[in-house]
Design a protein around this nucleic acid. Structure first.
Lengths: 134, 134
DNA sequence: GCTTGCCTTGAAGTGAACTTAAAGGTTTAG
DNA sequence: CTAAACCTTTAAGTTCACTTCAAGGCAAGC
């Protein structure tokens, strides 16, 4: 598949695809006789997964570790699955932290009366939105 | 309150406090006779809210809009509350998008059998984790 | 009164993740 | 055959959100 097609298929700019390859996130893509990139199915899988993980907020650095471990032929599929689970859980934790902060904001909104914003020395004590009892 | 105290109270570096003031996120903090910053209660409220919103992932640019609208004396408290609700909802949407991406990853993990990663032309069709029926 | 450590300012530097530019080769339409 | 629209590479530039630096003023301990 051409770089143009891959770019459209996964909604990632060609420059980004070249960048990911250059830094080693993507493997060296084989070139056709004219020196143009020709993406294999496996290459596309990687583009897809890197995109999903970047979307979820994973850093390039964390992705490096992940792809290197995942690609290694020494690793079993069980281990690969475990890697995926770990990455998923670490992303989940971040999202949960953000959710807590937003819940706190919600709490402040619910108790936003005629006073302006004030922090009342509460610091960041989160008030979970679905907690019983005010 | 001194910059040092504010920095400790809200766990924000002094450099960041000065930066937020310089770009206009925080109002001009008044100085004492020696030219040192002296934060008022209202200044501290702003430090607190900017920190909460940054924590939740709001960009500096979005915060600019928010603080400008919020600060305007022409605006009612009802309007201020509405602004908070809007910002909260927009943060919530982002978190939900991420959550979906992570759910998709979870789905892939649950269906991760003896094949390696592959995208199977599924594109980003999310499989909500708590959906009935596989 | 001097040293140490805090504060001030403006300007320059950093790191992450791209993005754009420059110079040139290839393919395709007319 | 040539012009437009692709592709290639290396290198430099951009954006965001800070951080660090440099040069100097203020304050507290000995």
């Amino acid at each position: 598949m051409t770089i143009d097609a891959v770019s459209k298929e996964f909604d990632v700019s060609k420059d980004t695809l070249r960048y990911w390859e250059r830094i080693g996130l993507l493997p060296k893509i084989t070139r056709n006789t004219s020196g143009y990139r020709d993406y294999s199915e496996m290459d596309m899988n990687w583009v897809f997964y890197i995109k999903v993980l970047r979307n979820a907020g994973m850093s390039i650095e964390a992705l490096f570790e992940f792809v290197e471990l995942f690609r290694s032929d020494q690793n079993t599929n069980d281990y690969r699955k475990q890697l995926l689970v770990e990455q998923r859980d670490s992303l989940l934790k971040e999202v949960e932290e953000r959710q807590k902060t937003i819940n706190y904001l919600s709490y402040k909104i619910d108790h936003f009366e005629d006073h302006t914003l004030n922090y009342e020395n509460e610091k960041l004590v989160y008030h979970a939105k679905d907690e019983k009892g005010d």
